[in-house]
């Protein structure tokens, strides 16, 4: 079985990071597994982790009183889940649920924040990647707001 130090640099989110930066990341990481249907996190709970998905798919659910639970996004292999660890008050705003068996790397948010505070180079490198993913998700959300498949088209 490959170690985290071997696997993480190859994940699309981390590709290109300096080895010294990767070593700091690996120090905050551990392998985790979730069975199909398992909950990774719940709305309102403390957000202290983000997940790098190795295999499987995670659905982000939100509860709408008029429509019940809705899946608003799903993330799979090669993607990352969870940004609430980065922004106060560090609480999840969606439920995260494994829609298949999921293997992931969990990174401790408090550990990462501490290392970023101590090492601006690490913080900048991480924020560049986080910003890229957030940009993609924001564009995704804005276009879906248009309801392009709706009855107006």
């Amino acid at each position: 079985m490959r170690t985290l130090a071997e696997y993480l640099p190859e994940h699309p989110f981390f590709q290109g990071l300096e080895p010294t930066v990767m070593d700091l990341m690996v120090g905050c990481a551990q392998n985790v597994h979730f069975a199909e249907g398992a909950t990774l996190f719940r709305t309102g709970e403390p957000a202290d982790t983000f997940y790098v998905i190795r295999h499987g798919r995670v659905a982000l659910d939100i509860h709408d009183p008029s429509r019940g639970d809705l899946v608003v996004a799903s993330l799979g292999e090669g993607e990352v889940v969870g940004w609430s660890w980065l922004v106060p008050p560090y609480r999840w705003v969606f439920d995260g649920r494994a829609t298949s068996g999921v293997s992931a790397v969990a990174l401790d948010g408090a550990c990462l924040r501490g290392k970023c505070d101590q090492d601006p180079a690490l913080g900048y490198a991480l924020m560049q990647r986080v910003s890229g993913v957030l940009y993609e998700r924001l564009q995704d959300a804005r276009i879906r707001l248009l309801d392009v498949y709706g009855s107006r088209t």
Binding site: A59, L60, G68, V71, V72, A73, S100, D140, R144
Partner: peptide, 17 residues
């Protein structure tokens, strides 16, 4: 799909992604 019920285990998001 743009959104789905909890029973949907497929992808949710933009097709362009």
């Amino acid at each position: 799909v743009d959104y789905g019920p909890p029973s949907w285990t497929g992808r949710v998001g933009l097709v362009t992604n």
